Amino acid sequence: MTLVESGLGAASWNVLTDGVSRTLGLSFGWTTNLISLLVLLAWIPLRELPGLGTLLNVAIVGLAADATATVLPHPHGTPAAIGYLVLGLVALAFFDALYLGAQFGSGPRDGIMTGLVRLTGLPIAAVRTGIEITVATAGWLLGGTFGVGTVLVALCMGPLVGYFLPRMAVRLPTVAADARHNP
C-alpha cells in the first residue's frame, strides 16, 4: 500500500487491481482476492501446484491491503512520497523473495512467474519484468493509478526479486540425495 499511497504510481498488479476495482465498484482488497482467484486459472496450463502459501496469499493479501490502507498515513510532500515509493518497492521485492524462498507454494501472481521461468528457462528478472509491464498496461487501460513510480516498479521489480530470491531460498534436499542418505 505504500506504493499506492505514494501518489507516484502503484505497483503493476496494484494498477491492474485499481483499474478493475474502479470498473467493478469493489474495494481494493476484494478486487485483489478476485484477481487472485482468476489468476489461479492461468496456473492450469503452466502446471503449477498450489501450497499452503498459495492459500494464505489468496486469503490474507487482500485483507491486509484494506487494513493497511486504513492505518497508513498519507505522505506529505514529494520527499515523503519518494520515500514511500522506494520503501514500498524494496519491501515488496524482498518480502516476495522471502515468502517464495520458504517454498510453501507461491501466491497466484508469483505462480505465473515461477511457472513461466520453469517452462521457458528465462531468468526471473526477464519473466517478472515482462509480467509487470503487461499487467501495468492492462490496469492503466482500465483507469488504474499509474505514474512514474509504476514505471520504476515495472522495470526494477524483476531484477530485485532475481537478486533477493537466491539469497532467501531455503535449500530443500532432492529426492536423489535423500535416497543416498536414507536407503
Rank of each mutant, 00 (worst) to 15 (best):
V90L: 15
T17L: 11
F146C: 02
N33V: 14
S12H: 04
H74I: 07
S21D: 00
T114Q: 07
T134D: 00
G130R: 07
L26G: 09
A136W: 10
A154G: 10
G88S: 11
P183Q: 04
T31R: 08
M157S: 04
T134H: 01
I82H: 02
G62K: 09
P159T: 14
T68R: 00
P45T: 12
T145G: 03
M113R: 10
A177L: 10
G51Y: 09
L24D: 01
L119I: 09
A154F: 08
I112C: 01
W43Q: 13
V90D: 11
G83W: 11
V161E: 05
L52T: 12
T32N: 14
P173Y: 06
S6E: 05
G7Y: 12
A179D: 00
L122W: 13
R171D: 04
G158M: 01
I133G: 01
R118F: 10
L52E: 04
F28H: 13
P79C: 08
M113C: 11
I112W: 03
G77W: 06
D18T: 02
R167I: 02
S12N: 04
I133H: 02
L3E: 10
L49H: 15
P73T: 05
F28Q: 15
A179P: 00
T114F: 06
T23E: 13
N57M: 01
V161C: 07
G111A: 07
